[in-house]
């Protein structure tokens, strides 16, 4: 696979950061179609970009197909988005506290923290076969 593939409300991209924009255009288009407020769209887009960035990084470490899948579902007044990679997984407990004094000026390590701050709910399922992170946000 060398280019994004769209099927319904799902986009699959190769594990390369150059495809972040493709995911964002697809996501924001769907959210606007749902009539979502622009500020909420930005919060969701920021969060998904964090998850896709991580998925691309982790996905490259695995022996799987190296693809990242993003699926968007509308459920009543909420939107649920899952981001899946086929990498080697990670333990959320191992992530340093980005607000600790010694970590404040680190250039990386804030992604999941920002997602937790912006979204209503986050569910992380990770194993050595890959990771799926599902976020939920009310869209009014």
């Amino acid at each position: 696979m060398d280019k994004p593939k769209i099927s319904g409300n799902k986009i699959t991209v190769p594990s390369d950061h150059e495809f972040l924009t493709d995911v964002d255009v697809f996501l924001e288009g769907l959210l606007r179609g749902f009539g979502t407020d622009e500020s909420v769209i930005a919060d969701i887009a920021i969060s998904v970009s964090e998850l896709v960035n991580n998925a691309i990084t982790h996905g490259r470490k695995g022996t799987g197909n190296g693809e990242v899948e993003v699926e968007i579902q509308r459920k009543d007044k909420k939107v649920q988005i899952s981001v899946t990679d086929h990498g080697t997984g990670f333990n959320p407990e191992d992530v340093d506290d980005p607000l600790a004094e010694e970590n404040l000026l680190k250039e990386v390590g804030r992604g999941i923290f920002i997602v937790r701050s912006l979204m209503d709910d986050i569910k992380i399922e990770s194993s050595d076969q890959g990771t799926t992170i599902t976020i939920t946000k009310s869209i009014g």
Partner: peptide, 15 residues
């Protein structure tokens, strides 16, 4: 329009 943690990392690196 917006930035994520990568953008913040760039600001920190620049600073």
């Amino acid at each position: 329009d917006w930035m994520n943690s990568t953008g913040l990392g760039i600001l920190i690196s620049s600073y």
